[in-house]
């Protein structure tokens, strides 16, 4: 027994409509490790309106110590993701910790620069750079 989708494939609209029936849960995972007395939080997936609250919750109880957020696995970040980074930075400051981001993809870095958040949240090219600088 097969499954067909209406309307039939035909232009971009039909293509998108068909794609829209797929499971579209954003790829997202977050984990952490202790390194040199600091917490390195690894994020993998898309940081967006759907997933940013999960990262914010994950970080919220861990910002009383130096935290480096490893963005190497983040291929997409929207304004909700940016907001999560700013919030973590502010909460870390209030809790006596420090917060920085490391290894952003070129497009994520560009969005951080466009919004001038690179002047607020410390940003490093690599996690080791962040560990040395944090």
């Amino acid at each position: 027994m097969g499954t067909s989708t209406t309307p039939p494939a035909g232009g971009d609209e039909a293509q998108l409509t068909a794609l829209g029936t797929h499971d579209v849960r954003p790829e997202f995972d977050v984990s952490h490790e202790e390194r040199d007395g600091r917490l390195v939080v690894h994020v993998v997936g898309e940081l967006d309106y759907h997933t940013a609250p999960r990262l914010q919750t994950y970080l919220s109880s861990r910002l009383d110590r130096p935290v480096v957020l490893d963005l190497e696995g983040v291929e997409f970040c929207d304004s909700s993701g940016l907001g999560c980074l700013v919030e973590a930075y502010k909460r870390a400051g209030a809790a006596g910790g420090r917060f920085s981001v490391a290894a952003p993809h070129p497009f994520v870095r560009r969005v951080l620069e466009l919004t001038q958040l690179d002047q607020i949240v410390p940003m490093f090219a690599t996690v080791p750079d962040a560990l040395r600088g944090s």
């Binding site: 067909s4 409509t17 829209g20 967006d48 929207d78």
Partner: peptide, 18 residues
């Protein structure tokens, strides 16, 4: 054969962004 009706509208929920 099963036909899936696809709405042109997305539900007002976070998953609709992706």
């Amino acid at each position: 054969m099963t036909t899936v009706a696809v709405s042109r509208w997305l539900p007002a929920e976070p998953a609709s962004v992706v």
